[in-house]
Computed example of a mutant assay.
Amino acid sequence: MIVADRYMVLAPKMKQDGQTAEVELAELIRNNFKPGDVHMIITYRRDQRPTKEECRRELEKFLRKVRKAYESRGQELKYIAVTRNKSRAPHHHIVINTESGIGVKELNELWDKGRTRFIYLDDTGQYGHLAHYLARE
């Protein structure tokens, strides 16, 4: 069984071969997240698109804010984050637990650099497609 560390960030390029990475990532999601948790996509305003290094810093800054909100409720934050910045529109994918009562409204308010989009994890436990999408380059 694969268990997420308390704070987990995946590098954009997985170290294993693609299929192994997808299988392990799907298991990681299945073992650490539940229906109702979210796959969050955060983007940047067109006129404020960051460099690769700025992307990393902005994600870290956002996750610090989220972590602080969780800690203020006595809850543990778990997440898997992947940054896509090869295109002209850099963005982040974050699978995040929402058990603490922190909802998408508050997560949306914490991201002030662009748009947010939320997709709830379903109750099937079949996260292969999500893992495939996150593990791809």
Rank of each mutant, 00 (worst) to 15 (best):
L25T: 14
Y133I: 13
L134F: 03
K105S: 10
N97V: 02
Q126C: 14
F62V: 03
Q48L: 12
L59F: 07
N85I: 09
F62L: 09
R46H: 14
F118V: 05
Y120D: 15
N32T: 00
T98Y: 00
L63E: 11
R45Y: 15
Q48C: 11
L121E: 14
G103F: 02
Y44H: 08
N32P: 05
E24T: 06
G18L: 14
K61H: 12
Y127K: 00
R57V: 06
W111V: 06
Y127E: 13
E71F: 01
P50R: 04
E109N: 10
Y127F: 14
V38F: 08
P90N: 07
K78Q: 13
Y44Q: 02
V23T: 14
T51D: 15
R115E: 14
V104Y: 08
A89K: 13
L134S: 10
Q75H: 06
R49N: 06
R88E: 15
G74E: 13
T51K: 07
K52W: 15
R64A: 12
R57Y: 00
V23I: 14
H132V: 00
H132L: 09
A89M: 13
R115W: 00
S72N: 09
F62Q: 08
I80E: 05
G114K: 01
E99G: 13
Y79T: 05
R84N: 12
R49I: 09
I96C: 05
Y44D: 07
E99L: 03
R88H: 12
E99V: 01
Q19W: 13
Q75R: 10
H93S: 10
I42H: 00
L130H: 03
V38H: 08
E22Y: 05
R117Y: 03
C55K: 03
K34Y: 04
K68R: 14
L25Q: 10
R45Q: 13
W111I: 04
E22F: 00
F118K: 09
D47K: 13
G101E: 02
L63A: 05
V95W: 01
R30S: 12
A21P: 10
E54D: 12
E76S: 12
T20M: 05
D122P: 11
L77N: 11
R56P: 04
I80S: 03
L107R: 07
L28F: 05
R73D: 09
N32A: 00
V95C: 00
Y79H: 15
M40D: 06
V38C: 14
D37P: 04
A21H: 06
E27L: 11
E54Y: 00
Y70K: 09
M40H: 02
R30V: 05
